[in-house]
Each structure stands twice: as structure tokens, then as C-alpha cells.
Computed example of a mutant assay.
Amino acid sequence: MSKVIVLIFLVFALVSCSKNYTKDKELLDSFSKEFVEGKNYILIIPVEGCSGCRNKSLNFMKRNIGHKTIGFVLTTKRSIKDIRLMLMSKEIDLADKKFESLVLDTESKAYQTGIMDKFPVLYRLENKEIQEKHILSASYVDESLNDLGLR
């Protein structure tokens, strides 16, 4: 009997300690397979929220937009117009072919799933599966993005 209790406890401990990325996976699965294919990182940038974090993330995006191993998602809880205005202010032209690795979350999926708050979210992927999730606050957004080894 004591072996059964120990076994149940061990199973419960293992299950409760595993990282649960169910909502995050739902969000990534809602984007096209081509978008996620071959990506090591996905960076989700909110239009609202921390303006310093957003601007640092957008500058990082502009420097690395053509890189094949990272994808970018811009999301808003208000209107797609907010995203378009922000892109225009940063001189980002969506018609440019190099912006294929940029997705506009026009349906606010990141907010609807409860993943997005006011800070950018960085996912590290392996074989299209989430390995790590980092919420990038203003105090270390530059450091976290620079650690990726991109530009």
C-alpha cells in the first residue's frame, strides 16, 4: 500500500512540475504552419503596454526581420489601425518581401488566449514545440534579445 501512495505522489509531482504551454501552443498553432516552420524563436510584440519594451523589440525586429530562424508577431487589443500606424512610424513596409516573417495578429488572439499582457513574449522552439517562454520586461529586454546571437 505504501508503494502505491509513493508512486501516486511521484506521478503527481512530475505532472505538476511539467511546464504547461497549452494556451501558448494554441496561439502558435493558430498561425500558418509556414510561419512557424524552421523557427527557433517567436517574438510577440504588443502595441499597447510598455512603450520602452515595444520600441526596443521593434528595433530588434527591424535589424533581424530577414533572419529565417526568428518570427515576429505584432498584436493589439484595439484595432489593426494601431499596428499599421506604428509600422508606418517605424518606416516598416509590409509589401517588402523581407517582412514574410512578420505576422499581424489582427484578431487579438494573443490577448484572447490570455498570453499577452503589457510586455513582449519570446518563445524558444525546437521542432515547432515550445521549449521556453520569456516575458521581456523593460529592465532586461535588450539583454534577452541580444542573447539570441542575432544583430
Rank of each mutant, 00 (worst) to 15 (best):
V73N: 02
K39M: 06
K62V: 00
C53Y: 02
K23D: 15
F72Y: 14
I44R: 10
L27E: 11
G52T: 00
F35S: 02
E48H: 07
G71W: 13
K33M: 08
V47H: 07
T22F: 15
D24I: 14
F35Q: 09
G38M: 00
K56P: 04
S32L: 04
L43H: 01
P46M: 03
Y21N: 13
T69W: 07
D29F: 12
I44V: 14
I65S: 10
F60Q: 03
I45P: 00
V73M: 08
P46S: 03
R54Y: 11
K62M: 08
I42S: 08
F31D: 13
I45N: 05
N59W: 10
N59V: 03
S30C: 12
I65Y: 06
L28T: 14
Y21V: 12
Y21H: 13
S57Q: 10
S57L: 08
G38Q: 02
I70A: 06
H67W: 05
E37H: 08
L28W: 14
L28V: 14
K56L: 03
G52L: 03
L27D: 10
E48K: 07
K39E: 04
K23Y: 15
F72T: 06
S51I: 07
S32Y: 03
H67I: 10
I42V: 10
G66S: 13
C53T: 01
V36L: 13
Y21C: 13
L27V: 15
R54I: 04
K56C: 01
E34Q: 12
F31Y: 15
S57T: 00
E48N: 04
N64M: 09
P46W: 00
C53G: 09
D24V: 15
G66T: 06
L43K: 01
K68Y: 06
K25P: 11
M61I: 00
R63L: 04
S51A: 07
I42P: 02
E26H: 14
K62N: 09
L58P: 00
I65N: 09
F72E: 10
H67V: 11
I45M: 05
F72M: 09
K39G: 06
K68F: 02
V36K: 05
S32Q: 12
S30W: 12
E34I: 01
R54N: 09
V47I: 15
D29A: 12
N64F: 02
G66L: 04
L43P: 06
N59I: 01
K25E: 15
T69M: 12
I45A: 04
S57H: 05
V73F: 03
G66Q: 09
L43E: 01
I45G: 02
H67T: 07
I44P: 10
N40F: 01
C53N: 07
S51C: 01
K62Y: 05
N40C: 06
C50D: 14
K25R: 13
N64D: 13
F35A: 03
C50V: 05
L43Q: 03
I44Q: 11
S57P: 07
E48C: 00
L74T: 08
N40K: 10
S32H: 05
E48W: 05
Y41R: 00
L58F: 09
